[in-house]
Structure formats: structure tokens, C-alpha cells
Design a binder for these strands. Structure first.
Lengths: 343, 343
DNA sequence: CTGAAAGCGCTTACAG
DNA sequence: CTGAAAGCGCTTACAG
């Protein structure tokens, strides 16, 4: 905890060593043009010699500036969020911002705590993938403080802030359209929870596709479960007990699809051959499964980059009305839908 | 950049509102016992009413304390590092420390820059997976400043600091022993670079296994390449051009193994059946490949947790000599080695 | 148990 | 172009 820097060099020391005032040294530090080349050099070499380390934290405190951004996501051990993080981190790095990380494991109380911690750390803004069903009041209160927040992936109805996500309705739509065109009539939708805005969107797309095809929807085909591999396994178990099994499965996301494929294989059902599978997100894993997973890409890395840019523009003072950046999803056709239903 | 908090409430405001001094309010904040219950309550309710946000940064500056830790790794889009990050983050969270992230992409100059940035942000310590071949002088200089650093996964010969890693020699040994016992005689070792301390260890284990079995080593079987999927693909291409192909492949890590399996499949060679494959690390992907990948687990999450604990003990003032925590690897036998060489 | 003063390391007007 | 002073929001001795 204690920073027991043995001989801690401050700007004061540098100034004295260079024979100038603290203010002058500070000016040199930030490359002011109002400094003579000769004093500039003197100060610079003094810094070198003394091994001076700039204290950005103290500087930020004084100048009321922040160079950190908070990122709150569900968990790290999930390729979707890893990819999101990569996009955010890479983009923010360009702006000289560093990210402070927090994971909620979808617990509302942890989210509350993290939000507080981030504020205490004087973040300039927050990127939040909110716990489903969490109240939007804390977010609005934070915005009130002048700290911008952008929601990513998961939307909160009442929150007055920016949002970056994929068009879930279209995503669900193109996935199910594709399956219907392949001749499937009984198509399950498994994984995720109906509180999730992304679940709702994907389900809506599913409904629309059925509607337009003039097909009836069987509520038994809709199975909620945690968005984990285990959740996929569990959902398949339930599905296999059904008297009238589906011929295709649209999974809430790729992680669910992985679990589903594992369980299917265990049950002697060949995914892709005996049962068509479509995922969502296109995480790196999707391409190495066998069969390679056909999935709807939500471009998580790009989502992250957009969120970072949007947040930074807010930090820089943009006062536009809250905007929503909706990425267009794309069906990535691979090998997990060879089977052609009852066509 | 600017933190234009509309009506920024400070401890001063709280104190005035509660009718006490700033010092008293500060004491309340940190739960001092020398405060009357009644004033405690007064102050607390004032904080509530005014919507006070504690400025931990200012507090840390004054009390010369740090609540952040720097983490520098090669890249985020790599399951090994994701897992490492999970372990570190989870453990550090328990100590109330937040992590500041940086990725080098194995560029020495980026690493230099990140190290500086972290110091400027007043991190209490640094966990570093160093760029191979980078000088240890900056690290020693940082330690000199009183900022502990722990190296993780990759060792630097001259660095006087803690290290957490897996026993690479043993890891290489058990992988190759296993293949030899399965009857293989021509075993390739592909991926990674010989500058990496982990590569050197695994290769040493490989050599030892051959030596003990009284088998000759063919230098053509050793192929270096970037530790990426593409690196695995490239290595296999080279391997297939060889007049005398191997019957088994020990991969520097699982990511290499994934690329290798992809390329093998493309070439009409069935991994696991026509060619045995062993990976290293046991990233989550290993279990979903088909065939499921037999691999040497390096327990990346546990590595992260150890590194975090070790660093924190240093931050707390531990002055033991630099220690090395070496985790014991474990062979995870799955399905990628069905073929039994020439036995 | 509480208050007045000094200080963490820096930057920001304001003089000169 | 450079210096002396005040202040960012907090904590830390030191009195009382």
C-alpha cells in the first residue's frame, strides 16, 4: 500500500537542480512554446539525471482532468467480452486513456460497488454492459455528475445515455430466415434470459421470421438458460425430452452453441448433420468448432471501438442528445447447417 | 478530458453542512473510532444528502498510497492471457486493488512506454509478461524506485524480481514422454521462438525425454514460428514439405495446436488419427476442438492468482529475497493422440 | 473527541 | 520568458 519511494524526486527537485522555478519546469514538461531552448534543455537533462517520474495523478488532480475510463462487464472469461475489451482498449489507447476494469458476474450489488469505486477513482467516463434488469437510476445520477456513460451490448430502458449494440432484431431475423429457407419448420431458440434486451431483440427477429413465413411458433421451442456452455448443455437436455423435437436450433450466442454441440454429440446426435445450429456473435471459437459454426456476427471488437470513440467524444465535451449506434449483424455461413429440414 | 462536474461536492462542503471540521469528516469517512456516534451520523447523512463522492485519488496522493496495479501482457485476444487476467483481476479485487491494463504486442518500445505510463499513474506494483529479449535494466530501475514488479510466464535472466511461471522443462518432458510411450519416434516441436524462456524450457524437456529414451533428435523437427494460429499453420506447411515427416507434434502452445490442426485438416490429414498432437496451456478452447486436444496444463488462471498475491505481499512491504513460484504442469489426456506411432 | 494548519505533487493565473 | 502564490481534494500530526 505505502509508496515508499526511496528518494522520491519531485518537480521541485528538478527545478532546483536546473536552477529554475517549479512553474518553469512544469511548462517544459508539457512542451510549452514560451520556454527558451536553453532552459528547456537544462530542465530536461536534470530530469534525466535525477530519474524524475512525472506524477500524472497529482497533475490530473490539480488540472481537473482524467486519463482513465471505467469498463464494467459481466466477466472476462468469455470471448465476447474479451473481444469487446480488445476493441475498447485499443481505441482508448489512441486517446491516451487507460482503462480500469470491473466484472459484475451479473450481480447488481457488485455493479453498484464497481460504479462507486470507478467514480472514486475519478474516471472520465464509464463503459457499461449492465446487469440485466438493473435500475437505470444510478446511471442517470452519474451522468448528472458530468461523467458520461455509454451502455454496450445491453440496453437499459430508462437510462438517458449513449448506447452501442448490434441490431438484435435483424440478427435474429437473418438467422431464422436462413434456417427456414433451408427447410426447417421446428426451430428452437435456446439460451439467455428474457430480461436481456439482446434476448428480446433476437426473439423478436425470430418471431418476425416465423410470422412472415406464415409458420406457427411453438412456445416449447423457447428455452431460457444462463449464457454459458453449461447453459447450452442444460437447454439441450430439456429439448431432447420433448416429444416433438426441433430440427434446428438458433442459439442466443456462440457460447451456448458450444455447449449445445457438446451435449448433442454426447447424445449421439451429430450437430450440423442431424441438427442444424446457428450461433450469435462470431467469437474466435466459432471457426474452430467442428462442424464450424454458422453464426450471426455482432462484431464485438468493432462494438468496443465504437463505444470507446463515443465515450471519448463525450469526455471531450460533446453535448449531442444521447445516441444509439446500432451495428448491422452479418450471417457467417459455415458448416453447422448442412441438414435441410423437412424440405 | 475536463471533469466538468456541475456542482462538485467536496469533503469541505460535507463538513460545513454537518457543522464539523474537514478533519472530522475525514475521520468519519475512514471509520475512525474516535468519533462520537452522533457526529458520525450527522456527517454520514450530510454525505448522503449532498451526494458526496469520495476522491480516492486525492486521498491516495496525500497519504502516499496506491490502489492500482499495472498489468502488462502481450495481447488480450489470446485465451492464455485472458485466463491470466481473470486470475489476477479476481485476486487483486480482494485486496481492493484495481488493475490498469497495457498490451505490448511484443514490441519493446511499447513495453517501455507502458512501463512509464504505469509509473506516472502511480501504480503500487507491476505484473509483467515481458517482451522476449527485452532488457532487464528498466525493471531493476523500477524496483529501485520501490515499486515491486513480478514477472509472469516469461522470465528475464538479469531481472532481480519475483517470478511466477510453470515448470516448462517438466511440461515439455511429460508431453514428449507420453508421445514416446505411445510409440512415436519422430516428434516435431513447433511454434514459439527460441528467445522465449518458456520455449527454452519446453525444448529442454523435449531433449531430455529423447535423451532418456536413447532416441536421436532431428533438428529438422524443430520449427519456430509466431505463437498464433497462423504460426501453427505456417509450421505445418514447412513440416509437410519434409521428406521424412513426423508422426507426432508437440506444440509450443494450444493456439499453435489449433492452427496446426486446421492446416492438417486442410491437407487431408486427420489430426489425432494420422498425426498425434499435444498442446500446452490448456486454454478453454482445447476442450472444444475435435478431436479434443491433449495438452499440458499450465493453469494460467492460477498463475495469475499467484502473481497477484505475490505482488500484493511486496506492496505490503515484504522484503524477502526475490522468489520464483513454479507451478507444476499436468498432462490432460484427451483425444488428439489416438495414433500409436511405429510401435 | 474536534479544529486549525500544513502538505501530497502538480498547474494555473498573475505579476514582472 | 520566468517566479511567487494559491489551490486541486484530501490526510496528518499537533493542539486543545
Amino acid at each position: 500500500m505505502k509508496l515508499e519511494k526511496k528518494t522520491h524526486i519531485t518537480l521541485q527537485d528538478v527545478a532546483k537542480h536546473a536552477g529554475v522555478s517549479r512553474a518553469t519546469a512544469s511548462l517544459v514538461l508539457r512542451g510549452s512554446k514560451h520556454i527558451t531552448e536553453s532552459t528547456r534543455e537544462k530542465v530536461l537533462t536534470s530530469m534525466q539525471q535525477l530519474g524524475y517520474v512525472y506524477d500524472r495523478v497529482a497533475a490530473n488532480l490539480r488540472s481537473k482532468v482524467s486519463t482513465t475510463v471505467g469498463l464494467i462487464i459481466m466477466e472476462l472469461a468469455n470471448p465476447f467480452y474479451s473481444e469487446l475489451l480488445v476493441g475498447i482498449h485499443q481505441e482508448l489507447d489512441k486517446f491516451g486513456q487507460t482503462v480500469i476494469l470491473g466484472t459484475t458476474f451479473d450481480s447488481e450489488s457488485i455493479q453498484e460497488r464497481l460504479l462507486s469505486t470507478m467514480l472514486e477513482h475519478r474516471v472520465g467516463g464509464i463503459i457499461l454492459s449492465a446487469v440485466p434488469g438493473s435500475p437505470s437510476e444510478p446511471i442517470n445520477r452519474i451522468e448528472q455528475l458530468g461523467i458520461p456513460v455509454v451502455l454496450v451490448g445491453r440496453r437499459l430502458p430508462e437510462a438517458k445515455c449513449d448506447y452501442v449494440g448490434v441490431d438484435n432484431i435483424m440478427g435474429g431475423r437473418i438467422a431464422v430466415d436462413y434456417l427456414i429457407h433451408k427447410g426447417h419448420r421446428r426451430i428452437a431458440f435456446i439460451g439467455g434470459y428474457s430480461q436481456l434486451s439482446s434476448w428480446q431483440g433476437r426473439k423478436q427477429g425470430y418471431d418476425k421470421a416465423f410470422e412472415q413465413a406464415g409458420l406457427p411458433i411453438d412456445p416449447a421451442m423457447i428455452i431460457e438458460s444462463p449464457a454459458t456452455r453449461q447453459g447450452g448443455i442444460d437447454a439441450i437436455e430439456k429439448l431432447l425430452r420433448l416429444p416433438n423435437r426441433p430440427t434446428a436450433i438458433f442459439c442466443y450466442n456462440d457460447t451456448i452453441a458450444i455447449g449445445a454441440m457438446m451435449k448433442l454429440q454426447d447424445a449421439g446426435i451429430c450437430p450440423g448433420q442431424d441438427m442444424a445450429i446457428v450461433g450469435f456473435d462470431d467469437i474466435p471459437e466459432a471457426a474452430i468448432l467442428s462442424p464450424k459454426l454458422t453464426t450471426v456476427s455482432s462484431f464485438p471488437r468493432m462494438m468496443g471501438a465504437h463505444a470507446a470513440r463515443l465515450l471519448y467524444s463525450r469526455i471531450e465535451g460533446s453535448t449531442l442528445d444521447p445516441t444509439a449506434v446500432i451495428l448491422e449483424p452479418q450471417l457467417i455461413i459455415r458448416d453447422s447447417c448442412k441438414f435441410s429440414g423437412s424440405s
